[in-house]
Design a protein around this nucleic acid. Structure first.
Lengths: 244, 244
DNA sequence: CGAACAATTGAACCGATTCAAGATGCGTGG
DNA sequence: CCACGCATCTTGAATCGGTTCAATTGTTCG
């Protein structure tokens, strides 16, 4: 039996999301059926949580505007930021396995998100192979991103990599790659990167004094992208891989 | 439209794999159709690689026996171990997104793996909703595992968590949870945990002198599981989450 | 304007790395 | 079967990066 999905079509070259924050690459008819199961958007005030870790998994969410961060509590009761979710990105996908959400998404600023009942999405994916492929692609990307941060990095490399990751993700969603807002507090960046807030400050200062960045309050301006990439010394989450 | 997939059935309570190293939970007929697309097993000698980072993505692989580790090269040319794959576990899933493998799986000892053409699996999943669900579940588990290691941990916690993770994964596959072989060299454990090989030795020594472990060459014996869990101080990859 | 919180800066401390040396295990050949 | 050589693992001491603690500056908002 010849496969109906060619290898090249497996590649998810365009995972950026339309205004409905869902994968594109579907034909208009399929897209319409997808839109039908998307629930209406909901606004979240600052510090408001979408659901709580431990809640039963039912929906996945897409950020429409603002910023969400996911918080997980470890066995010792310490909270860790395990991810930031920019407009166009999804969260809740990691709950499929256990059937319960493993982290709590919190709105960093006033934000808007929409949701999709996973069981309905799953059903629809059965009927629309291209949607199924998009979903697998999204999940794979998550795995990819999780792994790309692995390794031994200095505090400077982690900060540079963090800024670079935000830059690429904003760019992919159609925003500027060189100017954007750092909406999350320093202590949350610190938690996400597993370092002290003081170190975050010091590394920002170093990157600024090296002429790589400009930072004024929450506003970031990347002055020397090449130099920034050189500092990271690792494979960014969204980097195209090359054969070695 | 009522969903045909109830929320409870979304939970992948039994992700352990049968002798064919693929998800169970399929009815016999479906299982048979799945078996048909599984390619014959292949043996790999020590240090032999299954594919290379950068190769075009076509297949996913399941470990039948032995041990594989995946190696990624960062932008500076440094190699990092980003994962170990025990019998019954899959690798190659992170390549769906980019269409190319991002890491090179290497046999740590003489090992056996089988493969499945992803396009055929993807096609079949369209026809078998339960298979699609199993695939999503597996991917979700990968994301889950990747996140669970996030956070600031001491060298001792990382080593304890590593041993605990292996223990749970071996147990899930029907092996002993307290006695198993540490087939990978210390330097690869060190790379995986982002620490110096010397520190791996020191931490093993500490856990042994605390009466938590016994280690003789590659043989590990967990003497005090509760104490081991207490030392980790984080949420192991396979731990059932609780609401806080 | 002033209070409360967030971010920055400085100095001492600590854990992990690095460098160097010694021990152990293992395959090979005498 | 033992001796040798190589690789891996272990152990010790000095160094370094990041944390911690403490104090200051900056920012936001009632």
């Amino acid at each position: 039996m010849k496969s109906s999905v060619s290898p090249s079509s497996l590649r998810c070259s365009q995972c950026s999301l339309g205004k409905l924050c869902l994968p594109v690459g579907l034909d208009p008819g399929d897209m319409h059926r997808l839109e039908e199961i998307i629930e209406s958007s909901k606004s979240y005030k600052q510090s408001e949580s979408v659901y709580r870790a431990g809640d039963e998994f039912r929906k996945i969410y897409a950020v429409k505007s603002g910023l969400f961060e996911t918080v997980a509590t470890d066995a010792n009761g310490n909270e860790h930021i395990i991810g930031f979710h920019l407009p166009g990105e999804l969260f809740g996908l990691d709950a499929i396995y256990s059937g319960r959400y493993i982290s709590t998404p919190v709105a960093v600023t006033s934000s808007v998100a929409c949701s999709i009942e996973y069981s309905e999405l799953s059903d629809l994916a059965t009927k629309l192979p291209s949607l199924q492929n998009q979903l697998m692609c999204l999940m794979s990307k998550e795995v990819h991103s999780s792994h790309s941060g692995v390794g031994e990095y200095t505090a400077e490399q982690k900060i540079a990599g963090f800024i670079l990751s935000l830059s690429m993700r904003y760019q992919q969603r159609g925003y500027s790659a060189t100017r954007f807002q750092l909406l999350m507090p320093r202590k949350d960046i610190a938690s996400y990167l597993s370092m002290a807030p003081e170190t975050v400050s010091r590394m920002f200062r170093r990157l600024v004094s090296d002429g790589i960045l400009e930072i004024h309050q929450t506003e970031v301006n990347i002055k020397d992208m090449d130099h920034l990439k050189a500092v990271t010394g690792h494979i960014p989450a969204d980097r195209v891989f090359f054969s070695s």
